[in-house]
């Protein structure tokens, strides 16, 4: 039975099922109160926690929980930081780029084009021998660190713990203050985490595998996500085609493109999109956990130092194009340079 299921999940129908389920659940979560075109993401949301724990359950159920660490963790941390800075310049990870497109936000096309270009550069490094080196088996407790952090986050979230200094700060307005009911979000994310761990669903991998070896396996899952999310958005009346003043998005094309190019390159060098890194962290991969911590750090940098993109706004009926600050531009360019240095300098000689 377990073997049969594993075979099904590894098949093309398996990956399409994963994409379909995400495509249904994400727009529904938006309907239930999550920010527009942002069904699943952000820091310390129940969705993220559910992804890790869903993957953990799947890994245990199929005896795939394998604690491992030691493949260039410091490099993975840096890649996580810059991946997040790039993604926040665009205002979305690859999943959100697809969800934005499924909601009619045409800026996402430019973001996805940037993502593809970044991944293409990453593939060239992979072809020329780029490697972060091997990981090693480790203790069970080490594999549990990220799941334990997520359980801790969940408890903080449910009980809305307030520390004496005032933290944790819950956003009172803006996208951070919008959310679907916690247990529905968590349930949806647990299902997605479980399916994605079984099927290895990965947006970065879907583009990488096409470029690297004309393999469309992962891509069929991502395509299913886009098509199904679009249909569900149509049914729920959540599609609004356009470029300017899209929800939590800006139409500064160059920086949408470069931001996602940076993210794509960093994901390719680290071996997975943010979703995939969370699922890997759930099955005991300590190196992916470090990447996740890098992303959280990158998000903190981006938001505290004003590096993230500012959405378009409408002032007295006139669209004011958003974009990123000069500091944000410098951070994106610097990130690209750092990723290129990592790519060039970490190639194994044959």
């Amino acid at each position: 039975m377990s073997q049969r299921l594993t075979q099904f999940f590894a098949s093309r129908w398996g990956i399409i099922l994963a994409g379909t389920v995400i495509g249904i659940l994400a727009p529904l979560l938006q309907k239930l109160g999550n920010p527009p075109n942002m069904g699943i993401c952000q820091y310390m949301r129940p969705e993220i926690i559910g992804f890790v724990l869903g993957a953990l359950i799947a890994a245990y159920a199929f005896r795939e929980f394998k604690p491992r660490v030691g493949s260039a963790p410091i490099v993975r941390f840096i890649l996580g930081v810059f991946a997040m800075i790039g993604a926040l310049a665009f205002l979305g990870c690859p999943w959100r780029a697809i969800l934005r497109l499924a909601g009619g936000d045409l800026n996402a096309i430019i973001g996805l084009a940037g993502l593809a270009v970044g991944i293409t550069v990453g593939v060239q490094f992979l072809k020329s021998g780029y490697s972060l080196g091997r990981s090693n088996k480790t203790y069970h407790s080490v594999g549990w660190i990220m799941p334990a952090i997520m359980i801790g986050f969940f408890l903080l979230l449910v009980f809305r713990v307030q520390f004496s200094g005032g933290a944790i700060f819950f956003s009172k307005k803006g996208p951070g203050a919008m959310y679907a009911p916690i247990f529905i979000s968590l349930g949806a994310a647990l299902i997605i985490g479980f399916l994605a761990q079984r099927t290895r669903f990965c947006t970065m991998g879907s583009i990488r595998d096409i470029i690297l070896m004309r393999d469309t396996h992962l891509f069929s899952g991502v395509a299913a996500l886009l098509v199904v999310a679009f249909i569900v958005n149509l049914i729920l009346g959540q599609v609004k085609f356009g470029i300017s003043a899209q929800p939590i998005a800006h139409s500064s094309h160059l920086w949408n493109f470069l931001g996602m190019a940076l993210a794509g390159l960093a994901f390719a060098l680290a071996g997975g999109c943010p979703g995939r890194q969370l699922f890997l962290a759930g099955e005991g991969d300590g190196d992916s956990a470090i990447f996740v911590i890098g992303m959280i750090t990158g998000a903190a940098f981006a938001h505290n130092f004003g590096l993230a993109g500012k959405p378009d706004t409408i002032v007295e009926g006139v669209v004011k194009v958003g974009g990123i600050s000069t500091a944000g531009m410098i951070a994106v360019i610097f990130g690209l340079v750092v990723c290129l240095i990592i790519g060039f300098s970490m190639r194994e000689k044959n």
Binding site: R68, K127, L132, G205
Partner: peptide
């Protein structure tokens, strides 16, 4: 390809 992360095992085999 033990310990190598995706997609290196595939590339090495290819």
């Amino acid at each position: 390809a033990r310990g190598l992360s995706c997609p290196q095992p595939v590339l090495a085999t290819k």
